[in-house]
C-alpha cells in the first residue's frame, strides 16, 4: 500500500467512523438515560434499538428543508455546516493508535484549541441568521460561555504541555509511557473535562439551548438535516473531548498488550463518554450567572494555581 492510499484510507475511515460513532452515540445516550431513569429508551428498531439512528436519519432527511422567510438565508445554511466542520477538523490531529490518525502536527494541541474556539462562530451564525429572539439569547449565551470557558481550557492543558515539553499529541502520548498525566495533572484533567462539556454545550452547561427557557436556543428555527448537523456536531465534539482527554491524561493508546492500541484508545474514550452521559443524566442546569461565576471565579483561579504549582514542581 502506498502511503497516499494509506493516508486516504486513514482519513476516510476516521471521518466515517467519527460521524457514525457520533450518530450511534445519540442512540447510546438515549438508551443509557433511559436505563438510569428506570425506563427502556429506544429499543425497537434493530437489535437493542441500535438501528434507531437509521430511523432518525431517514426522518431527518425526509423533513422539509425549511428556511424561514425572515432568516439570513446564506448564513442560515452555512452555520450548521460550519459547526460540523470545525469539530471534524479538530479530530484530524487526534492520534488514535500508532499509524492511526489523520495528521501528525507539531502544534497539534494548539490546532485543536484553535478549532474548538471556532465552534462559537457556528452557534453565533445560526443564532444571528435565525432572526429569532430565543435564538438571539441562546447565541449570546453561547458566545459568552464559550469565550469564558476557552480561557481556562487552554490554561488547564499547559500543565500537561510543560510535563511533556511538546505540543505534538503523539509525543504527548508517548511521554506518558511511565505514568499517565492524570496523576500529576488531576486538577488539569478536572478543569479540562468541565471545559470540554461546556464547549460542546451539554448539560449541565447547555444554557445556549436551554429548552425550558429558550425553546431550543440558537437552533430554534432549525429543522431537518440542518438541525441534524448541529445535533451530530454536538456528539462529535463529545467524542472529541473524550478522545482528547484520553490522549492528554490517560495515555492514549498505551496499555497492556492484551488489547491492541486502538482498542485501548477506544475503551478509554468510551468510558469517558459514558461519564459525560452520566453527568447529563444526573446534574441539573445552573443559572446563567452561576455558570459565569463558576467559570471566572473558580475554574480560572484553579487553572492558574494548577499551572503555578506544576511549573514550580518542574523547576524544583
Amino acid at each position: 500500500m502506498s502511503p497516499v492510499v494509506n493516508n486516504l484510507l486513514n482519513v476516510v475511515l476516521i471521518l466515517v467512523c467519527v460521524v457514525f460513532g457520533a450518530a450511534l452515540l445519540t442512540w447510546l445516550e438515549r438508551r443509557l438515560l433511559g436505563i438510569w431513569q428506570d425506563r427502556y429508551g429506544p429499543n425497537r428498531v434493530g437489535p437493542f434499538g441500535t438501528l434507531q439512528i437509521v430511523a432518525d436519519m431517514i426522518k431527518l432527511l425526509m423533513k422539509q428543508d425549511w428556511v424561514p422567510p425572515f432568516a439570513d438565508r446564506l448564513i442560515f445554511i452555512v452555520a450548521p455546516a460550519f459547526a460540523m466542520f470545525v469539530v471534524v477538523a479538530a479530530f484530524a490531529v487526534i492520534p488514535m493508535a500508532p499509524g492511526v490518525g489523520v495528521v501528525d502536527l507539531n502544534i497539534g494541541l494548539l490546532f485543536f484549541l484553535a478549532m474548538t474556539s471556532l465552534g462559537v462562530y457556528a452557534v453565533m451564525f445560526g443564532a444571528y441568521a435565525s432572526d429569532n429572539k430565543y435564538a438571539m439569547l441562546g447565541g449570546l449565551r453561547a458566545a459568552a460561555q464559550m469565550v469564558s470557558y476557552e480561557v481556562f481550557m487552554g490554561l488547564s492543558l499547559m500543565g500537561v504541555v510543560m510535563l511533556a515539553g511538546t505540543f505534538n499529541l503523539r509525543e504527548l502520548v508517548l511521554a506518558q509511557a511511565d505514568g499517565w498525566f492524570i496523576g500529576p495533572q488531576i486538577v488539569g484533567f478536572f478543569i479540562f473535562f468541565m471545559a470540554g462539556i461546556a464547549e460542546s454545550h451539554r448539560t449541565p452547561f447547555d444554557l445556549p439551548e436551554a429548552e425550558h427557557e429558550l425553546t431550543a436556543g440558537f437552533h430554534t428555527e432549525y429543522s431537518g438535516m440542518k438541525f441534524a448537523m448541529f445535533f451530530i456536531g454536538e456528539y462529535v465534539s463529545v467524542l472529541m473531548s473524550a478522545a482528547m482527554i484520553t490522549v492528554l491524561f490517560f495515555g492514549g493508546w498505551l496499555g497492556p498488550a492484551w488489547l491492541p492500541p486502538l482498542g485501548w484508545f477506544l475503551l478509554k474514550t468510551m468510558t469517558l463518554v459514558l461519564l459525560m452521559i452520566l453527568i447529563r443524566g444526573s446534574l441539573p442546569r445552573p443559572r446563567y450567572d452561576q455558570l459565569m461565576t463558576f467559570g471566572w471565579k473558580f475554574m480560572l483561579p484553579l487553572a492558574l494555581i494548577n499551572l503555578l504549582i506544576t511549573s514550580a514542581l518542574i523547576l524544583i
Binding site: W36, Q37, D38, R39, Y40, L278, G281, S282, L283
Partner: peptide, 20 residues
C-alpha cells in the same frame, strides 16, 4: 454532585418502571 452521579449510576441495576 458526586453523590448524585453515584446514585444515578446505581440505577443501571434497577428494574424499569415502564412497561413495553
Amino acid at each position: 454532585n458526586i453523590v448524585t452521579l453515584v446514585k444515578v449510576a446505581s440505577h443501571t441495576f434497577t428494574k424499569a418502571d415502564t412497561v413495553e
